[in-house]
Amino acid sequence: MASQGTKRSYEQMETDGERQNATEIRASVGKMIGGIGRFYIQMCTELKLSDYEGRLIQNSLTIERMVLSAFDERRNKYLEEHPSAGKDPKKTGGPIYRRVNGKWMRELILYDKEEIRRIWRQANNGDDATAGLTHMMIWHSNLNDATYQRTRALVRTGMDPRMCSLMQGSTLPRRSGAAGAAVKGVGTMVMELVRMIKRGINDRNFWRGENGRKTRIAYERMCNILKGKFQTAAQKAMMDQVRESRNPGNAEFEDLTFLARSALILRGSVAHKSCLPACVYGPAVASGYDFEREGYSLVGIDPFRLLQNSQVYSLIRPNENPAHKSQLVWMACHSAAFEDLRVLSFIKGTKVLPRGKLSTRGVQIASNENMETMESSTLELRSRYWAIRTRSGGNTNQQRASAGQISIQPTFSVQRNLPFDRTTIMAAFNGNTEGRTSDMRTEIIRMMESARPEDVSFQGRGVFELSDEKAASPIVPSFDMSNEGSYFFGDNAEEYDN
């Protein structure tokens, strides 16, 4: 783990906690998980779902989305002020799938948001429990990260689609708070800032007046979040320049895209947490497990152990491969979309394939898809080993990566060399080191050039047997250095459309 220093740990961010010791953190995270579980059980009762239907990941996603929508204050306010045809701002819903006479049927349900809020609060001892809501947002974000390569979004903001390893959390809503900021990748933060800068260039009043003052505060806050992700002084200094700019424009845009590229080699610290679907927490609570009393951590053995003992089902389209669908969801559960496939294969105990080789589309089923041909199958979400999630980018030494994705962002704290394609990355730096950030740029390029592919990161860190909950005997895996390590390699994943 990167030293926490003055930073709060993510469990504290996750639970809005002030400084807590490890036991208190485990208890408050457990409380959050228990609340999600209780809410899910109650919703299944309301909807009269069978046990099997309640364990269907598509039903879980609909129920999670309903509660997130019920608590989305800004959108609710907007919907009330701008009524649109056929949208009731006070209601929320989605597809629920039921097994009827041996076939899967889709039923569109509609609930009062007020009623959903009441059920959620009741499951969370009367609190709004925003930490639990954020947790579900991060699960949705991790699922998107594993399912889609955001080529269009990258290109629109002047970045290269091969930089997708920097895009963790790119679909997280803005209201996801400190826990959300911690899991956002460098590219995601750059993209958010670039969008602001572009608006400022096109709209003279963007930075002016009372609204402009708020915009400015948001801009500086985002700059500080991004600065905190960088691990070298030169990158941090460049972020200070971007933040202090009187009138952010093209120079800042250039600096930010430069920094994003540099992060492929001088990786930023991005938190990883295993956020599971509500249909995993519900049955665990129903079986009598007391998360608050037992304590829970999002970055240790607990999620692995929970998945070892969970039964989750998914709808499967006619030509999809259930094992591939399982891999997709497994990666999402562990926030591992940008991790090295060699490491993932070792931990999972079966070969993890790149996205383009998977015969599976996303987990969600569109409303126009034919239910007649839908089957369902068990998702295999178990693992051979477990490993500690990392909050750091690993040290800054790398190795060759593949054509589709030119770097990785480690999820697990496991000893290995970190793949990246130096030639491709360095070719993108057209040696432009003039301007006010020239000395920093020169320094950053120097550090990137001296990074050695064969150097090892996370020295001495290994994986653990599932029986080793105290992480007492690390097993340090050895990897084939020459092997392909990137998930979005030469990829044809669908595009994420909101």
Rank of each mutant, 00 (worst) to 15 (best):
R74M: 11
M32I: 10
C44M: 11
Q4F: 15
A129K: 12
T215A: 15
S326L: 08
R65W: 10
L315P: 04
T157N: 09
T171P: 01
F429S: 09
V67L: 11
L108V: 10
R293E: 14
P277A: 12
A427P: 08
E454K: 11
L79C: 10
I119A: 04
A179V: 09
R391K: 14
L381A: 02
Y487A: 04
N211V: 10
S359R: 06
G158N: 09
M426P: 01
Q12I: 14
R55T: 08
G209W: 03
D128M: 02
T157M: 14
E53L: 04
S60G: 13
G17C: 10
G212P: 01
I301Y: 12
P322Y: 02
A178P: 08
L226D: 06
Y487M: 09
T437M: 07
E252H: 02
A366I: 02
G394T: 10
L353R: 15
M481T: 10
G404Q: 13
A70Y: 05
R243H: 09
E484R: 08
R261Y: 08
I425Q: 07
Q405T: 01
I445H: 04
Y296R: 01
T151M: 14
S335M: 03
Y296S: 14
A286M: 11
P453M: 07
N370M: 03
R38Q: 10
K214I: 08
A179R: 00
I201E: 04
L307A: 15
M105Y: 10
K184L: 07
M448L: 14
T360I: 13
K357S: 15
E115D: 15
R342V: 00
S482A: 04
R55L: 13
L56F: 13
Q399E: 05
F346P: 00
W139N: 03
G362A: 09
F206Y: 10
S170L: 11
S383D: 07
R461S: 00
I217H: 02
S407E: 01
I316W: 01
H140M: 05
R243E: 01
H135S: 13
L256D: 04
P453H: 10
G93N: 04
Y313Q: 06
M1Q: 13
N498G: 12
R195S: 06
K357Q: 11
M331W: 04
M374A: 12
V299M: 05
